[in-house]
Computed example of a mutant assay.
Amino acid sequence: MQFQGPPLVQAACLLRDVRPWGRVDTASVEVPESVSRLVGQPTDSWKAPLRRWLAHLGLSEQDVGGPLDAPVSAAAREDGAAVSARYFVIHDTSWPWFGAHDFPPEADPHMNDLSRYAHASTALAHVFVNRLGRTLTTHDFSEPWRATKLEMRAAGVPVKGLFLHVELVQPRRSDPAGPAGNDAQAPLPGFTPAQYDMLALLYLAASVRAGEGLIPALHGALDEGLIDGHDDPQNFLLTAFAAALARLEQQLSALSVP
Rank of each mutant, 00 (worst) to 15 (best):
A82T: 01
G181L: 11
T138V: 14
V35H: 04
L238F: 09
L132G: 13
A118K: 08
I215S: 00
G156I: 13
V64Y: 02
A221H: 06
A123Q: 08
R146H: 12
V64E: 01
P189F: 02
A107K: 12
P171C: 15
S142H: 10
L54M: 03
A81M: 03
S174W: 03
E212C: 06
T43F: 07
L214S: 02
A118I: 02
V35F: 04
G225I: 09
F128K: 05
L136E: 01
L54S: 01
S256E: 13
V18P: 10
S142V: 02
A11E: 01
L222V: 07
V157R: 15
A221C: 11
A200C: 01
L245K: 05
L248I: 04
H101S: 14
A82S: 13
R37N: 08
G58V: 06
S174H: 13
D223W: 12
A11I: 03
A74P: 00
V166G: 08
H101C: 05
S94D: 15
V89K: 09
L222N: 04
R23Q: 15
A205L: 01
M1C: 05
R209G: 02
V257Y: 04
L248R: 10
C13R: 15
L248P: 08
V208W: 05
V72S: 12
S45L: 11
G66C: 06
V18C: 08
P171D: 13
R173G: 12
A27K: 12
V208P: 00
Y117R: 06
G220R: 10
Q4E: 11
D223C: 10
R247M: 01
H119G: 05
W145P: 00
T135Y: 03
V24T: 12
G22M: 11
A177R: 15
E249M: 06
F128S: 07
H119M: 10
G211F: 05
R153A: 14
P233R: 06
Y87R: 07
R146C: 15
D232H: 10
S84H: 12
S84P: 03
E143C: 12
E224C: 08
L202C: 02
A180N: 12
Q250S: 14
L214I: 00
T122N: 09
V83G: 00
V159A: 04
Y196W: 06
I215V: 15
Q170A: 14
E224Y: 11
A48P: 03
W95I: 00
P258K: 10
S34F: 00
V35T: 09
N182T: 07
E30W: 07
R146I: 14
G225C: 07
F191V: 06
A155I: 09
P71L: 11
Q2W: 00
L237M: 13
D223H: 11
A246N: 10
L201C: 00
D69M: 02
L248D: 05
S142G: 12
D232N: 14
L132E: 15
Q170T: 10
F3W: 15
P216M: 07
I227E: 15
S207F: 03
G5W: 07
L202Q: 03
L204Y: 03
H110D: 12
